[in-house]
């Protein structure tokens, strides 16, 4: 009985949340709408990053992979005249393909070595963009990327409408990512993270699953890059440098990487703090310092991230409403 109620309240909460997301652009100013678009894109980026970390490998090249999607989609659309929706898909696929190729050198490494290896691979890609003016445009990057075509009378140039487009694409992607994580494949990723030798001994090809996680994560990162490129209209190698990667790390870690929603909570909370509170206070140049302090504090004091705080609050809330169940199931540790 209680489960029914909690199910209903969960659905209700979900619907309220969805309604809030749909109404959101109506209550925001123009520049805040632009931020909302970028936030939705970043949600996809950080959620795809979490899929990557499921197998226990922390990559420092994820933003560059996003850039691969952005560059590929921009070039397909601009040079080859591919329609933008198709080029976005092609861009995401190119990012996945790049990940598949990179798997062979990178997954010979683990831990720190993988971290630094992925960083180096990303830097090589970035330097290639920088060095070759054709087709990548050199340090200045690609400008005048065609935008998303208008749908009937709806102009996709408007941040408001692009927000809805991104929301739809990202929601679908998040649903797929969530399903992957809940599936047998996702469980295998977890198994590889915690016990890779054991997983191997029961017949799991760890290399293939690591590669699969990397390719899937890169596909969605590339998709977020494509959404970005056709919205902003210009991309360059600096946009995808390690500073941006640091922000993705901060979002994921401050949010907490234990559950699916942790990194998403992280990116949303930090973007709100960043854009609304810090911007209005005018701390523009001090912002990285606050970000750095937040990162250190959350590593030191919130090992489970913000999501751990949310869980704790939820438990307290529940405990007040209903008597504590006698057997408490551990959250996925």
């Amino acid at each position: 009985m209680r489960e029914d109620i909690s199910k209903i309240s969960k659905w209700g909460l979900g619907l309220v949340f969805l309604a809030a997301l749909l109404v959101l652009p109506q209550v925001l100013s123009y520049s805040q709408r632009e931020i909302a678009v970028l936030l939705v894109i970043n949600v996809l980026l950080v959620a795809s990053y979490r899929l990557m970390t499921l197998t226990g490998e922390w990559s420092l090249g994820h933003v560059v992979i996003m850039g691969v999607g952005a560059y590929a989609s921009a070039l397909f659309a601009k040079r080859l005249g591919v329609p933008v929706p198709v080029s976005m898909f092609l861009g995401a696929s190119t990012a996945g393909l790049a990940a598949a190729v990179l798997s062979f050198p990178l997954f010979r490494m683990k831990g720190f070595y993988f971290l630094i290896g992925s960083f180096a691979a990303g830097e090589v890609i970035r330097l290639v963009w920088k060095y070759f003016s054709t087709p990548f445009g050199g340090p200045k990057g690609i400008k005048l990327i065609p935008g998303f075509p208008d749908i009937g009378p709806i102009s996709m140039f408007e941040p408001e409408n692009y927000y809805y487009l991104c929301l739809a694409v990202v929601s679908l992607s998040l649903f797929i990512l969530y399903r992957i994580e809940q599936s047998r494949i996702g469980l295998t990723f977890h198994a590889i993270h915690w016990q890779d030798k054991l997983a191997e001994s029961v017949g799991v090809g760890t290399f293939r699953y690591r590669m699969l996680a990397f390719v899937l994560a890169s596909f969605f990162a590339g998709l977020s890059g494509a959404l970005y490129a056709h919205y902003i209209g210009t991309i360059n190698p600096t946009r995808f440098d390690v500073e941006e990667m640091v922000f993705v790390l901060i979002w994921a870690i401050v949010g907490g990487t234990n559950t699916f929603f942790g990194p998403i909570i992280g990116v949303v909370a930090l973007t709100i703090i960043n854009e609304i509170i810090l911007r209005s206070l005018g701390f523009d140049s001090a912002r990285p310092m606050i970000y750095g302090a937040l990162l250190i504090l959350s590593v030191l004091f919130l090992p489970k991230g913000l999501e751990g705080v949310v869980q704790k609050a939820g438990r307290i809330f529940k405990a007040r409403k209903a008597p504590e169940p006698t057997v408490r199931r551990e959250q996925n540790a």
Binding site: F112, L115, V246, L249, I250, I253, S285, A286, R287, P288, M289, Y291, G292, A293, L294, L295, I296, V299, L300, P303
Partner: peptide, 15 residues
């Protein structure tokens, strides 16, 4: 965690 914390420290020194 140490590595990530050092990234935070990096941002603070830079700023």
């Amino acid at each position: 965690g140490g590595l990530i914390a050092s990234i935070g420290f990096l941002l603070m020194l830079q700023t």
